[in-house]
């Protein structure tokens, strides 16, 4: 019979709000669509048929899906940036940008524990851990690069002022040859990111058993009672020790200083 050291009481924590989950799954969907159609645009397979060209629009549809998904991706991305300023503490922009030493320290701890697999140690983070947050920040930069290069390529096909704002891009890349190449290469960042991301979700769920996978469905994570109390204490210490918090009307949640940026 299996034996375990302790039976845990789990506390339910609401981590991912509905808009965050909606953003996540829409983002996942459009990134899959963009990578698939983008790869086909770069390397079209031989979809031959006997029909006349006038009766087919297959490649046109593939490109159409790519462009629609690109617009969804871009505006979804903008929405997420906005939500980083109005969402809950786990959605806040401070989770993503290292603004203080504590952030870097936590990153190093996560690298030791989860990447180099320090024996039988685990790291508790209710929302994003510092390393994950920072890597999401890098993906946001990649989103930006991909949007700029993509709309740069699209600009000459579009009459809309929004896409036309990006006509300057191809100049930086020495014409559309280079622009296209970089846009295509950046796709691989998304593919590799997705592989690692999905793996790590499974990893955390497997090792920690806190409902990492399902959290992006219902928004809940489940942490042990003692871990919950420890986390609460830690956050309280931070809140009360910072002098500015007493002056802020809403408990310092909107404070942008480096001290408060600690996750």
């Amino acid at each position: 019979m299996a034996t375990h050291t302790a039976t845990h009481k789990l506390r339910r924590v609401f981590v991912w709000e509905l808009p965050v989950r909606f953003y996540h799954w829409l983002n996942a969907l459009v990134i899959v669509a963009l990578c698939a159609t983008g790869y086909l645009i770069g390397n079209p397979p031989a979809f031959l048929s006997n029909a006349e060209a006038s009766d087919q629009y297959l490649f046109g549809w593939i490109r159409f899906i790519h462009f629609v998904a690109a617009y969804l991706f871009f505006f979804n991305f903008l929405f997420r940036l906005y939500w980083g300023f109005v969402g809950n503490k786990y959605a806040d922009w401070k989770n993503f940008i290292p603004t203080n030493r504590k952030f870097w320290q936590e990153m190093w701890e996560v690298i030791k524990i989860d990447i180099f697999l320090q024996k039988d140690k685990e790291h508790l983070s209710v929302g994003h851990n510092a390393l994950a947050g920072f890597i999401y920040f890098l993906t946001f930069l990649a989103f930006l690069v991909q949007c700029i290069t993509g709309f740069g390529l699209y600009a000459s096909m579009s009459d809309w002022w929004f896409a036309d704002m990006f006509v300057w891009v191809s100049g930086i890349f020495g014409g559309e040859f280079g622009l296209r190449n970089w846009h295509h290469a950046a796709m691989w960042f998304f593919i590799i990111f997705a592989m690692v991301h999905v793996y790590l979700v499974f990893y955390h769920d497997y090792v920690e058993g806190r409902g990492e996978i399902s959290s992006m469905g219902g928004g809940w994570k489940f942490i042990e009672d003692e871990a919950f109390e420890k986390e609460k204490q830690r956050q309280n210490v931070e809140k009360t020790t910072h002098p500015r918090h007493r002056q802020l009307p809403y408990g310092g949640r909107r404070c942008w200083c480096a001290f408060c940026a600690a996750p």
């Binding site: 299996a2 685990e122 497997y206 090792v207």
Partner: peptide, 16 residues
């Protein structure tokens, strides 16, 4: 490397 953690979680679940 994480054998202890994993087996604990699994054991807890299976016992339940």
């Amino acid at each position: 490397r994480k054998n202890k953690l994993i087996s604990n979680v699994i054991a807890e679940g299976k016992d339940a």
